[in-house]
Design a protein around this nucleic acid. Sequence first.
DNA 1: ATCGATGGTTAAATCGATTCACCGCACTCG
DNA 2: CGAGTGCGGTGAATCGATTTAACCATCGAT
Lengths: 336, 336
Amino acid sequence: MTTANVRDVAALAGVSVGTVSNVLNQSKPVSAETAKRVLDAIDKLGFVRNDAARQLRVGQSRTVGMMVLDVSNPFFADVERGAEDLLGEHGRPLILGNSGESTARELAYLDLFEEQRVSGLLITPVGSVQRRLERLRERGSPVVLVDRHDNAQTFSSVSVDDLRGGELAAGHLLDLGRRNLAFVGGPTEILQVSQRARGAQQAALERDGGRIRMLELDTMRAEAGRAAGEQLLALPAVDRPDAVFAANDLIALGLLQALTRAGVRVPDDIALIGYDDISFAANAAIPLSSIRQPAREMGRAAAELLLAEIESPGRTEYRHIAFQPELVVRESTAGR
Amino acid sequence: MTTANVRDVAALAGVSVGTVSNVLNQSKPVSAETAKRVLDAIDKLGFVRNDAARQLRVGQSRTVGMMVLDVSNPFFADVERGAEDLLGEHGRPLILGNSGESTARELAYLDLFEEQRVSGLLITPVGSVQRRLERLRERGSPVVLVDRHDNAQTFSSVSVDDLRGGELAAGHLLDLGRRNLAFVGGPTEILQVSQRARGAQQAALERDGGRIRMLELDTMRAEAGRAAGEQLLALPAVDRPDAVFAANDLIALGLLQALTRAGVRVPDDIALIGYDDISFAANAAIPLSSIRQPAREMGRAAAELLLAEIESPGRTEYRHIAFQPELVVRESTAGR
DNA sequence: ATCGATGGTTAAATCGATTCACCGCACTCG
DNA sequence: CGAGTGCGGTGAATCGATTTAACCATCGAT
């Protein structure tokens, strides 16, 4: 029980295999009449092109690989959607791998992508895979970094200006008249986190806002935010901040829960702002102000950069697109 | 600039290509000494197996395809993780496609999977693709349905007992002493939704709980829940339900927002329970009771069924695994 | 009438890994 | 002593689509 191949189609249509291929790929003109005969034969036999054979001959797959840190984080899910949309418009399927922040899984996926000879790769790297990525590119699969600054300037990339994002968030809180700010964020080794913190401090400096209390967490998850909230509540009243900037929305939601359950009024007693503007921010009990990152657009832009490299190989100039974050004001920081 | 292939490796190691293949696949015993020579050669040349050539020869890919309705829905993201984990343990990569509930995209991905000759397919179908799936299977790619009942009994499947889930949720509300229930859910064409509703009605019948008010929405998103909440608030006080069962957590979160902003106390005035137990349910301002579906386990189970079919083709007996939902009580339905 | 050009089609070579029939060789068993 | 049997290993055939050189009419221009 084997499935039909081009030869079968050619036989039934009474043409050569070359002609079938020409119909399939429009690589050469074919008369309308023969084209119809071929298409009929394809239909009758239920022929479906064997992509492996095509790839083997052409030397490259049409699919693009993508590695994200965590599909279940809505931010990455949106980036993925943006990329998938754009690539879909160009008839290129996307293979998604999620590393789950594990270096081992990341390497396993890189092996896979290399064996598959993907036509390109979008990646938010977790380990130090610089050399691997360079090798991938040498072998004909260009690479675009997503949401990672590329110090060495050796790859195209898209990113968001996290410094500015931090500035926007803290600046907004300060503009509300709050003076006792706290920053609550995940491990500072994550570049994004430290940039957001630095941006916040800059804003404080510019506006004479005094020192910002720093609360370092070891994850970016809601549970950590809840714990941080309890920590804040334990502070003596004079020390308690009147505004909190959370390094992402998950943390902010955890904080919000801890605060409201303790009877603290948001925003009256403590104003709260998050980061990422995931959909759950707008849908929280007290709609959460946040810093919006244009996730979908970032995905699209990364895919565009990649397509450009795929289609004009041999270029050695890499582009960097920095998106500007945007302040979204909701109830959690409404004026008093 | 072409990359090394088995022939190059064979030449450098001083063996035949057959031997290289045997080393690569352990298909035949190779003496330790020659194996080492081959591995060294692979290393020196930076050889990476061309998967297209392998697939062409073998007739099938090792990768498994998966179609989900929406990656950004945390429930599906978890199912995906479960499947990916198990398949990863068997060295099988997963290609993820999300239909976004669009029939056109679903068909496009099915074409792709068919061209790729995936070794199997996990799918939560959106359109009526029964015939397509049967064809896929005839061509050697077994199919397992995820979270969809299969009336025709022609595919293996995993699902959750939604009838029981509805019963659990409504039963819990009734046990709290509430008597004026409302069910708020997405389009009833979705089997899951109507099953949950039926389960709820059954519980009411059993416990003499009277009629349940039905509010039909056209999406399962938080915005729809918010709108439904406003609708409930507009009801005259006597008609207003004292307990609401939402068809999923997103809707419940939307409801929670609308209710709390209007000053309604949850659970005192209105008790609220959702469905799915996504992580945001536990992290809501008022932690949300919910019906937990074992998403990860479902993904694993589906992958197991699929592997079984892949490895023993020609079996014609299909298995169905029904998971039992579980009631998770949190503050939103705490006793008064 | 001859030469090019053009549009349409063909046949054979090609991509790279796997497989299978077969080959030595050493060793054992009856 | 001859047949049988493992073990390591070989190399040609194979999978199916694409591509390229070549070919053949037909037509217009010179």
